[in-house]
Amino acid sequence: MVKVIWIYKVNDPLNDFLERQINAADLQGSEFEKLSIDEHPELIEEYEIEKTHTLVFFDREGDRIANYDGPFNSKELEESIKVMNFFDYVANYNGEES
């Protein structure tokens, strides 16, 4: 399972649209969190944020996998989560069936 953090800027006109996209997306059991760069400016450097509305993906170990920079829609979010879940599964597969 991957964790996704949405890094956004307070009072950005796209926030309402993106919030609707998140609510419409099938997050497939992924953990989802949102953090404001206004309240947490250290995130810009920590996660190499280049644009507002960045999604930061983490694997089950808490290591950052990737960033998705810029606005997104529900389908892009769903596809990104599918890809990240696949890579997380492959990276942690040990050849045993549970």
Rank of each mutant, 00 (worst) to 15 (best):
V4T: 06
V4G: 12
V4M: 00
V4K: 06
I5C: 05
I7W: 08
Y8G: 02
Y8C: 02
K9I: 03
K9F: 03
K9E: 14
K9W: 03
V10H: 13
N11S: 14
L14Q: 11
L14R: 11
N15D: 08
N15R: 09
D16H: 12
F17L: 14
L18K: 03
L18G: 03
E19Y: 12
Q21D: 07
I22R: 12
I22Y: 08
N23F: 10
A25E: 01
A25C: 01
A25P: 02
D26E: 12
D26P: 00
D26Y: 10
Q28E: 13
Q28C: 05
G29H: 04
G29N: 09
S30K: 05
S30V: 11
E31G: 05
E31F: 05
F32H: 05
L35I: 00
S36G: 10
I37M: 14
D38W: 07
D38R: 06
D38N: 15
E39A: 15
E39H: 09
H40Y: 15
P41T: 07
E42C: 00
E42N: 06
E42W: 13
L43F: 14
L43I: 04
I44F: 04
I44R: 04
E46F: 07
Y47C: 01
Y47H: 15
Y47P: 00
E48V: 02
I49Q: 06
I49D: 11
I49W: 12
E50D: 05
K51V: 03
K51Q: 15
K51I: 02
K51A: 13
K51H: 13
T52C: 02
T52A: 05
H53T: 03
L55V: 06
V56C: 12
V56P: 11
F57N: 05
F58I: 00
D59Q: 02
D59Y: 02
R60N: 09
R60S: 14
E61A: 10
E61V: 01
E61W: 07
D63N: 11
D63H: 10
A66M: 11
Y68Q: 14
Y68F: 14
Y68R: 13
D69M: 01
G70R: 08
G70Q: 08
G70T: 06
G70F: 11
P71Y: 11
S74C: 14
K75W: 09
K75V: 14
E76H: 07
E78Y: 12
E79I: 04
I81K: 05
I81H: 02
I81L: 05
I81M: 01
K82P: 00
V83W: 10
M84L: 03
M84I: 06
M84W: 02
F86I: 03
F86R: 08
F87Y: 12
D88R: 00
N92M: 03
N92E: 09
N94V: 05
